[in-house]
Design a protein around this nucleic acid. Structure first.
Lengths: 213, 213
DNA sequence: TTTAAAAAAGGACATTTGTCTCGATTAAAT
DNA sequence: ATTTAATCGAGACAAATGTCCTTTTTTAAA
């Protein structure tokens, strides 16, 4: 669920160090700031150096669907550069984010001239297809409780904490359903509650856990 | 829903004509034949020259999820070649299929040496990400009826006919739900029934339509 | 054409999920 | 510390979906 690509990041780090004249800058985004807006035209791609962002589609019915959480080394805006389209998703910083900003012409010439970069990009796109497909299948065919459990465990493993709203949007469900399933999981004891407290920063969780003892 | 990539196909057609010595063959698959099995190791990629295939994931709970229907010019097995993994999906011929068979080494060397090919591949992967993401979002956030309606219209536009089982698997629902929504759509008159008859070859459809008049 | 077997459709009920709302909990202000 | 405002959780009901099983329709055989 939190995608990263450290190989890609090292490449860019190195490339910047070796090509100081290149037209690459670093930008900082405050937590919550939406640095890419769905439907807009952009002229840069971004590579996350630090922090976590969420990439999400806002549907016309007002609902959001989180495509992925993006961490170190993840690229954003490359589809738009390759296919010359307006932004497919919104991208917002979840915590403070630092990202490389690379203008489209430089990005496209890198693809044209640097084989290593192209290979890395092909790898990145492949991974994305695999993850998106696998996840779509999983979420359509399994019960919510199962999907949520998997999500919670992933979160515990990766030591990150994500708001309930965002988790619900990631699962494509309402917060009400999220709460319901969460409670079921805790009641059944399918998820170790000590892990739980560190992972989810839920105000009422302590009380909930007390009551359930 | 039926993906095609005619540019890609022309490239391969041309490449084959110009490089007769190259290690590329044409294979035919009968309707229904599953030419790629999830979890298996493969050493070729396939490019569909003619016919329609379905690419689907079989989950452990016995359910299938159709990722996409693939038509002319679509590639299969390239993710496996790029990431050196076993097959992510099953791929089965829906009608008779003819496909180019390209060994992994040749595929990888094309990426390495032929810029045009690499560009086409990047375009193909990008399109796939866009479509998979858009669809996942759509199917999670809209009602089934809405998704089904969209699917039926697409099918009518592209003049193809797909079995109910496959459509249900594509939507990630049971055939029962599919039937239910279908009836609703017909009753409400949201879908032009004349289009309908040509698209869906459903045994009972004529009667259904009679009764509903 | 009639009958038997196979396949598809739909009814009934259970389960899941969403919406709306109200009560409880937390945070903020004084 | 007390009051007020804002946020969050969950009950109640409605809508959607799945499962199981019966009925209907189609196909195949005699």
């Amino acid at each position: 669920m939190l995608r990263t690509n450290l190989t890609f990041l090292s490449f860019i780090d190195r490339f910047c160090a070796e090509n100081e004249e290149a037209d690459i800058t670093l930008k900082n985004f405050k937590a919550g700031y939406r640095f890419i807006e769905q439907g807009e035209k952009i002229s840069n791609i971004y590579i996350i150096k630090d922090g976590i962002s969420k990439c999400f589609i806002s549907e016309e019915n007002g609902k959001d669907f989180i495509i992925e959480f993006l961490g170190k080394g993840e690229v954003v805006g490359e589809l738009e550069a390759l296919k010359k389209i307006t932004c497919l998703c919104n991208v917002a910083a979840i915590n403070d984010v630092m990202a490389y900003v690379i203008p489209h012409p430089l990005f496209l010439s890198l693809i044209d001239k640097n084989n290593e970069f192209t290979t890395l990009l092909l790898q990145e796109l492949s991974t994305r297809i695999i993850q998106t497909s696998t996840r779509a299948s999983f979420q359509q065919l399994y019960t919510l409780e199962y999907a949520l459990l998997k999500l919670l465990k992933l979160q515990a493993d990766e030591h990150i904490s994500i708001s309930k709203e965002d988790m619900a949007a990631y699962l494509g469900i309402s917060v009400r359903s999220f709460n319901r399933s969460l409670k079921q999981i805790v009641i059944k004891g399918d998820f170790d509650t000590s892990e739980f407290k560190n992972t989810l920063q839920l105000a009422n969780m302590k009380k909930l856990l007390e009551r359930l003892k």
